[in-house]
Protein backbone atom coordinates (compact mmCIF):
# COMPACT_ATOMS: atom_id res chain seq x y z
CA UNK A 1 0.00 0.00 0.00
CA UNK A 2 1.59 3.22 -1.16
CA UNK A 3 0.96 6.64 0.29
CA UNK A 4 1.15 10.14 -1.28
CA UNK A 5 2.56 13.16 0.51
CA UNK A 6 2.96 16.80 -0.54
CA UNK A 7 5.54 19.59 -0.15
CA UNK A 8 5.00 23.32 0.30
CA UNK A 9 6.67 23.79 -3.11
CA UNK A 10 3.77 21.83 -4.64
CA UNK A 11 5.51 18.56 -5.38
CA UNK A 12 3.92 15.19 -4.59
CA UNK A 13 5.77 12.03 -3.57
CA UNK A 14 4.49 8.47 -3.66
CA UNK A 15 6.52 5.98 -1.67
CA UNK A 16 6.71 2.27 -2.67
CA UNK A 17 9.29 0.49 -0.54
CA UNK A 18 12.33 2.74 -0.88
CA UNK A 19 11.26 4.11 -4.30
CA UNK A 20 9.79 7.61 -4.35
CA UNK A 21 7.88 8.76 -7.44
CA UNK A 22 7.81 12.54 -7.72
CA UNK A 23 5.65 14.96 -9.67
CA UNK A 24 4.01 18.37 -9.37
CA UNK A 25 0.54 18.83 -7.95
CA UNK A 26 -2.67 19.60 -9.82
CA UNK A 27 -2.61 23.06 -8.24
CA UNK A 28 0.95 23.65 -9.49
CA UNK A 29 0.13 22.72 -13.09
CA UNK A 30 -2.94 24.95 -12.94
CA UNK A 31 -0.83 27.90 -11.76
CA UNK A 32 1.76 27.31 -14.48
CA UNK A 33 -0.70 27.00 -17.34
CA UNK A 34 0.16 25.01 -20.47
CA UNK A 35 3.40 23.17 -19.82
CA UNK A 36 5.63 23.42 -22.89
CA UNK A 37 8.91 21.91 -21.73
CA UNK A 38 10.26 19.65 -19.02
CA UNK A 39 13.93 19.20 -18.21
CA UNK A 40 14.60 15.92 -16.43
CA UNK A 41 17.60 14.93 -14.31
CA UNK A 42 20.20 12.39 -15.38
CA UNK A 43 19.81 8.87 -14.04
CA UNK A 44 22.26 8.26 -11.24
CA UNK A 45 22.19 11.88 -10.08
CA UNK A 46 22.06 12.26 -6.32
CA UNK A 47 19.77 15.04 -5.11
CA UNK A 48 19.26 16.47 -1.68
CA UNK A 49 15.90 17.34 -0.21
CA UNK A 50 14.95 20.89 -1.19
CA UNK A 51 17.44 21.07 -4.08
CA UNK A 52 16.58 21.30 -7.78
CA UNK A 53 15.48 18.01 -9.31
CA UNK A 54 13.91 19.10 -12.61
CA UNK A 55 12.67 22.14 -14.48
CA UNK A 56 9.19 22.76 -15.83
CA UNK A 57 8.30 25.55 -18.23
CA UNK A 58 5.16 27.21 -19.49
CA UNK A 59 5.12 29.93 -22.14
CA UNK A 60 5.71 32.71 -19.62
CA UNK A 61 7.34 31.00 -16.65
CA UNK A 62 10.05 28.56 -15.73
CA UNK A 63 9.98 26.82 -12.36
CA UNK A 64 12.30 24.49 -10.56
CA UNK A 65 10.92 21.22 -9.28
CA UNK A 66 12.61 20.55 -5.94
CA UNK A 67 13.26 17.13 -4.51
CA UNK A 68 10.87 16.73 -1.55
CA UNK A 69 13.13 13.94 -0.24
CA UNK A 70 16.80 13.11 -0.77
CA UNK A 71 17.83 10.22 -2.98
CA UNK A 72 19.35 8.93 -6.19
CA UNK A 73 17.53 9.24 -9.52
CA UNK A 74 16.76 5.72 -10.80
CA UNK A 75 14.18 6.47 -13.49
CA UNK A 76 12.80 9.50 -15.35
CA UNK A 77 9.55 9.93 -17.27
CA UNK A 78 11.09 10.57 -20.67
CA UNK A 79 7.66 10.68 -22.38
CA UNK A 80 7.33 14.20 -20.94
CA UNK A 81 10.07 15.42 -23.28
CA UNK A 82 7.87 14.68 -26.28
CA UNK A 83 4.48 15.38 -24.70
CA UNK A 84 4.85 17.89 -21.87
CA UNK A 85 1.07 18.40 -21.98
CA UNK A 86 0.78 15.19 -19.94
CA UNK A 87 1.73 17.27 -16.88
CA UNK A 88 -1.43 19.35 -17.38
CA UNK A 89 -3.63 16.39 -18.25
CA UNK A 90 -2.60 14.02 -15.47
CA UNK A 91 -0.30 15.74 -13.01
CA UNK A 92 -0.74 13.14 -10.29
CA UNK A 93 -0.49 10.10 -12.59
CA UNK A 94 1.12 9.88 -16.02
CA UNK A 95 2.67 13.30 -15.51
CA UNK A 96 5.24 12.07 -12.93
CA UNK A 97 8.79 13.42 -13.34
CA UNK A 98 11.28 11.04 -11.72
CA UNK A 99 11.77 8.15 -9.36
CA UNK A 100 14.32 8.31 -6.56
CA UNK A 101 15.86 5.61 -4.45
CA UNK A 102 15.26 7.15 -1.06
CA UNK A 103 18.02 7.31 1.50
CA UNK A 104 16.05 8.42 4.55
CA UNK A 105 12.37 7.46 4.69
CA UNK A 106 12.03 9.65 7.75
CA UNK A 107 11.98 12.69 5.45
CA UNK A 108 8.76 11.40 3.88
CA UNK A 109 6.92 11.53 7.17
CA UNK A 110 7.68 15.24 7.57
CA UNK A 111 5.71 16.11 4.40
CA UNK A 112 2.01 17.03 4.35
CA UNK A 113 -0.74 14.51 3.77
CA UNK A 114 -3.55 15.27 1.32
CA UNK A 115 -5.83 16.98 3.82
CA UNK A 116 -3.02 19.17 5.15
CA UNK A 117 -1.91 20.11 1.62
CA UNK A 118 -5.45 21.01 0.55
CA UNK A 119 -5.71 23.25 3.57
CA UNK A 120 -2.31 24.76 2.75
CA UNK A 121 -3.42 25.57 -0.84
CA UNK A 122 -6.66 27.08 0.41
CA UNK A 123 -4.62 29.37 2.62
CA UNK A 124 -2.78 30.73 -0.44
CA UNK A 125 -5.89 32.44 -1.81
Amino acid sequence: MSEVRYSQEHEWVKLDGDTATIGITHYAQEQLGDVVFVELPEIGKKVEKGKELAMVESVKAASEVYAPVSGEVIEVNSTLTETPATVNEDALGKGWFAKLKVADKGQFATLMDEAAYNKFVEGLH
Binding site: V36, F37, V59, A85
Partner: peptide, 8 residues
Protein backbone atom coordinates in the same frame (compact mmCIF):
# COMPACT_ATOMS: atom_id res chain seq x y z
CA UNK B 1 -1.64 33.60 -31.55
CA UNK B 2 -1.08 30.18 -30.04
CA UNK B 3 2.10 30.65 -28.03
CA UNK B 4 1.80 27.21 -26.45
CA UNK B 5 1.96 25.52 -29.84
CA UNK B 6 4.95 27.67 -30.81
CA UNK B 7 6.85 26.60 -27.68
CA UNK B 8 5.83 22.93 -27.64
Amino acid sequence: LDETLAAR
